Computed example of a mutant assay.
Amino acid sequence: MLLRSARTLIGVTTIVVFWALGAGWLAQPLLDLAQRGAPPGGQTVAPATYAAHTAIVMLGTGTIQREGKLVPPTDGIARIVKSADLYARCKRVSPVCHVIVSGGNPQQHEATEADTYLPYVLREGVPRGDVILENTSLTTYENARNVSAILPDGYYGSLILVTSAFQMPRALLDFHRFGMNPLPIVSNTRRATRGLLPRRINFFNAEIALHELIGIAQFHVYRQIGWF
């Protein structure tokens, strides 16, 4: 009887959690936790923020297949557009503005994130000569580590970090770990769609949020044991 009652409770709880995630009622709190601490979207950067040598670092967020072609996902497009806008504003006041596109191939697709994003960055008006590709990193930690390795000491007077709100808190931890203190600029914020029926996008949002929350916990654990 006890085993049967336990199985019933576990089954009902699983169904409720599954529904709450898909209907958005649990997915949104998870997103709020993951995006907590990220600056609000729509920030403006004062012209004085751009130094004579400015680097705009854009983090990758995977690639997807669309109509038989490897392309950036929606979050990636938002990051590209935001980075290109920052670049255009930078060029109005600074002689040297570079966009560093950081992202390898963790999904083992036919091309890296950085190489896939490059044509879209160029299409947004950033000249190829002002784009630096970092296409070997597989994690946010490696994004920070590899970017720090390609930044000449003291060359860039201003460093700007562009990524989605859900990744920003973890990205800042990693960049600070390597002695960098970039200005965080959020490209986009994710929101769950609450309702009665489960939606696929809400499960995806919940997965993203859990990935970031686990990554933050992992960072602190690794720091405590001396791995980071």
Rank of each mutant, 00 (worst) to 15 (best):
Gly42Ala: 08
Val57Trp: 14
Gly37Ala: 08
Pro39Ala: 01
Ala20Leu: 09
Thr63Met: 03
Thr61Leu: 03
Val57Cys: 12
Tyr50His: 00
Pro39Trp: 00
Thr49Gln: 12
Ala46Glu: 09
Pro39Leu: 00
Ala34Gln: 11
Gln43Ser: 15
His53Tyr: 14
Gln28Trp: 02
Gly41Ile: 11
Asp32Met: 02
Pro39Cys: 03
Gln43Asp: 05
Phe18Trp: 09
Val45Trp: 03
Met58Lys: 14
Trp19Leu: 13
Gly42Glu: 02
Ile64Met: 09
Thr54Gln: 10
Ile64Phe: 02
Pro39Thr: 03
Val57Asp: 07
Trp19Ala: 08
Gly60Leu: 04
Gly62Phe: 00
Gly37Tyr: 07
Gly62Tyr: 00
Leu31Met: 10
Leu31Thr: 06
Val45Gln: 05
Gln28Ala: 06
Thr49Cys: 09
Gln35Trp: 06
Thr44Pro: 13
Val57Ile: 15
Gln35His: 11
Ile64Gln: 12
Met58Thr: 15
Gly60Val: 01
Leu31Ser: 07
Ala55Phe: 12
Leu31Arg: 08
Pro47Cys: 00
Gln28Ser: 07
Leu26Arg: 02
Thr44Trp: 07
Ala52Asp: 14
Pro39Phe: 03
Pro40Ile: 00
Phe18Lys: 00
Arg36Met: 04
Ala46Leu: 11
Gly22Tyr: 00
Leu59Ile: 04
Thr54Ile: 09
Ile56Phe: 05
Thr61Tyr: 04
Tyr50Leu: 02
Gly42Leu: 05
Gln43Met: 13
Pro40Met: 01
Thr44Cys: 05
Leu26Met: 03
Gly22Arg: 01
Ala23Asn: 15
Phe18Ile: 04
Tyr50Asn: 02
Ala34His: 12
Ala51Trp: 06
Ala46His: 10
Thr54His: 11
Ala55Gly: 13
Thr44Tyr: 08
Leu59Tyr: 03
Leu21Met: 07
Thr61Glu: 04
Gly60Trp: 01
Ile56Gly: 12
Ala38Arg: 12
Leu26Thr: 03
Asp32His: 03
Leu26Asn: 02
Met58Asn: 10
Ile64Cys: 01
Asp32Val: 00
Ala46Pro: 06
Pro39Lys: 05
Ala52Thr: 09
Ala48His: 13
Gly22Asp: 00
Asp32Ile: 00
Ala20Met: 07
Ala48Ile: 10
Gly37Arg: 12
Ala20Trp: 01
Trp19His: 06
Ala38Trp: 08
Ala38Leu: 05
Leu33Trp: 15
Gly42Pro: 15
Pro39Arg: 04
Ala48Ser: 15
Gly62Pro: 13
Asp32Arg: 14
Val57Tyr: 12
Asp32Ser: 05
